[in-house]
Amino acid sequence: MIDVVNLQKSFGKVEVLKGIDITINKGDIVCVIGPSGSGKSTFLRCLNCMEDPTGGQIIFNGVNIADMHVDINLHRRKMGMVFQQFNLFNNKTVLQNIMLAPVHIGKTELRKAKWHNLFHKDKVEITTTKAQIVADAKENAMQLLRRIGLEDKANVYPSTLSGGQKQRVAIIRAMAMNPDVILFDEPTSALDPEMVGEVLDLMKSLAKEGLTMVIVTHEMGFAREVANRVIFIDEGKILEEAPPEEFFGNPKNPRLKDFLSKVL
């Protein structure tokens, strides 16, 4: 699904990613581990071009999205992202947070189709209406909220939620786009310890459903339990890539051994 080929990223003269190659298949759960400042976030943010790669390719569903000429917004709809700081839209209610993108994109598509039909002979079939788009998005959002047990919070603003609630809303906001893959950047690092569990549980249940995920995390227990592959990034390179049993049980790279001995 995602083919990363010789990915490089520099900020000015600072070379952060020095050629990363990895293939992420449908249903994969890849956990990314490494010391702070090693380029984990940068790697993840290059996958959806939140940072523009300075070299290499990111082939997502057959398209090289690192190419500046592709419409990145189209591809990002299928590639969700969850941030360490949640980043819920502060000026929108919980429900609006979840509905905003599906409604906006649905309406934009509808408008495009109508324009097309105005000027072209080959009509595209229009099967929906604005009201229908909103109704569908709302139903979907409420269903997702029920799933995480927060339907009673639909109409509150994010500032009234706890950290764990915010992050779970952020996750279902990404789910609302029905993405092919979701990228997580240390989703539990900003949480109070007692709230880490609820977020990891939600992620585990998504994993069981076969959602493809790339997760930068310091939760080694979680990585061991959920990932089907763990990668170790240090100084901008992947130094080890293995299934969790092997990764944690029999690490080969000396720096990984050193790292694991410090964190486990």
Partner: peptide, 14 residues
């Protein structure tokens, strides 16, 4: 906060 813009871009909004 710049994260607000990033969150919008991450769901595919322009």
């Amino acid at each position: 906060d710049h994260g607000q813009m990033e969150a919008g871009r991450a769901v595919g909004l322009s």
